[in-house]
Amino acid sequence: MIEVISADRCIRCDICERICPAFVFDRDETGLPVIARQDDCQTCFLCEIYCPTDALYVAEQADGPTGITEPDVLERDLFGAYARALGWNRGRAGGTRNDPTRHIRVAQV
């Protein structure tokens, strides 16, 4: 579930708050997102790819937090990992034209 919001990277837009399907975020008086309802997070990773500055990190465990911290995420280069894999960039969609899934579908039968 969502565990890390980087105050350094965050530009205080309201995108994560608006697009979260589970309505997990609030924002504080400075505009910084706050993980207000962490247990509602559905670990879909979509806030990460919509974030224009790769400021969010969703850990892989869906049932509870892992305790990972911002320095760990930075050290392991995990900010923006899903966006890079998809071909999304700065919150903008991209990369479907290079999706090789058709090869997988042919081979799966």
């Binding site: 990773f45 892989e60 990992a81 899903y82 998809l86 999706d99 899934t101 997988i104």
Partner: peptide, 11 residues
């Protein structure tokens, strides 16, 4: 193909 085509699975 799996890594690039199913990136969600690899997160």
């Amino acid at each position: 193909w799996l890594r690039r085509g199913q990136p969600n699975c690899f997160q």
